[in-house]
């Protein structure tokens, strides 16, 4: 029993790393663009389908890099043409509904172009190989997911910490008006930030597709845990979103060991408890976005 528990906890952590990757992209956009990007799941699916088309030409590794960037290009268009117009509206309902509508459109486009049937995404053979059969059943792919999540997160934090644009993004999160007055083009900054968020979604989408396969609605199931991760971790804190993702992944994994049917519901229960005990989340700032 102990071993099974350990195994499920480990699996949960891997899942959590994945949730964290998703949540980071969402939290970035939420922070600087003040937008809950409902289309994040659709962008995930879009990048995964781009990868599906690219793999025959570029191989898996090329697709892993090129497809999220392509999704980023679409994200750029969406931000400059649509989302940007709504920054001046205070009520968050408008960006919510806009990105919700966008998600429907992107999903429908995917269905029209690639078909409604599920498809597999080819991943390199050595990643599919089980690493261990004795106690854990573990494929290399799951470790690979963790590695990408770690690299992606590390890169993001390095960018935010050490580069000029990263410093501006952080400053913008703190006080957009002031950095605008100091001469930073905040429209450009927000566009760049939006693209980074979409690229993150794209990477997560390809990773998910390698495991679960492709279908037009694949993003729907994945975006909700990311929301919960942000609420648990606290809005306004990227580290919080990361922690939130890991916690709900872990909880979901452990629950699978005892009561598999509840593995999805448990993350919402955790969120409920967090809201009662500590409404602002683990590392959230009081009163942000309220």
């Amino acid at each position: 029993m102990g071993l099974i528990l350990l195994f499920n906890a480990f699996n949960g952590l891997i899942q959590g790393a994945f949730y964290a990757l998703m949540a980071l992209g969402l939290a970035l956009i939420l922070g600087l663009n003040n937008t809950i990007n409902f289309a994040q799941g659709a962008f995930m699916a879009l990048a995964a389908y781009f990868a599906f088309t690219l793999v025959p030409y570029t191989g898996f590794w090329g697709a892993l890099i090129a497809a999220p960037l392509l999704a980023g290009v679409i994200g750029f268009a969406v931000e400059t043409v649509l989302v940007r117009r709504l920054y001046s509206r205070k009520d968050p309902i408008y960006t919510l509904l806009l990105t919700f509508g966008l998600a429907l459109i992107i999903q429908d486009m995917i269905r029209t172009i690639w078909g409604a049937q599920g498809k597999p995404l080819a991943i390199p053979g050595f990643l599919n190989h089980p690493l261990s059969n004795t106690y854990f059943f573990l494929t290399g792919y799951r470790l690979f997911v963790v590695a990408v999540a770690l690299i992606g997160t590390g890169a993001l934090f390095a960018v935010l910490r050490f580069t000029r644009i990263g410093i501006r993004i952080r400053a913008g999160n703190a006080d957009l008006e002031t950095i605008s007055a100091l001469g930073v083009n905040i429209y450009l900054l927000r566009t760049a930030n939006f693209i980074i968020g979409i690229v993150f979604a794209g990477v997560a989408g390809i990773l998910a597709a390698g495991q679960l396969g492709l279908n037009p609605t694949m993003g729907d199931a994945l975006i909700m845990p990311a929301f919960v991760a942000i609420v648990v971790g606290g809005v306004g804190s990227l580290v919080g979103s990361l922690l939130g993702g890991l916690i709900i992944g872990l909880a979901s994994g452990i629950t699978t060991a005892f009561f598999p049917a509840a593995s999805e519901v448990v993350i919402y229960v955790i969120m409920g408890i967090m809201l009662v005990v500590r409404p602002r989340g683990l590392l959230g700032q009081e009163g942000l976005f309220e």
Partner: peptide, 12 residues
Amino acid sequence: RRGIYFAMITIA
């Protein structure tokens, strides 16, 4: 919570 937060909680 209010605002965006409220929306996310109600969705969840």
